[in-house]
Amino acid sequence: MIIEGKALKFGEDINTDLIFPGRYLTLTKPEELAKCAMVGTDPAFPEKVKSYGVVVTGRNFGCGSSREHAPRALKYAGVKCILAESFARIFFRNAINIGLPILECRGVHSAVNEGDLLVIDMKKGVVEDHSTGKTLKAKPFPNFLIKIIDNGGLVEHINAEVKQR
């Protein structure tokens, strides 16, 4: 899968209360979740992200709560991929499970400028910055996770396995 988009940057330790504030946790519909994405840190995000597409962030993205509302809101708002120095572990699982493309990519936060045009090869784990000409290599996913990612998420993965049996 090849993903193209412009970089929208955030700092480190972006927690789930910033991604999806607690006061919205009774919402469940995709269009409602989309409107709350990142509003704890940038109320303009749900509009802004449409012209960017790729979130580039520092260490420990998604730390805090297990709320799956956080990755779902980002996905429904139109985030095509998140590139981070590292992810907090529950956010990492949630993103894989719901089919939101993410890559852990050391050095990405300093190498990429806001607005840079990025072309991301998810399979190879390669990020090309077409604005600067730089190429970055992401941490490869283990085979186990590639199967879930290829199926489009955990629900689809389990359904595919049931079919095989």
Partner: peptide, 13 residues
């Protein structure tokens, strides 16, 4: 701690 889809997977399997 895990996510909601994780829990759905456990419900089923």
């Amino acid at each position: 701690g895990v996510g909601s889809t994780d829990v759905a997977a456990v419900f089923a399997t």
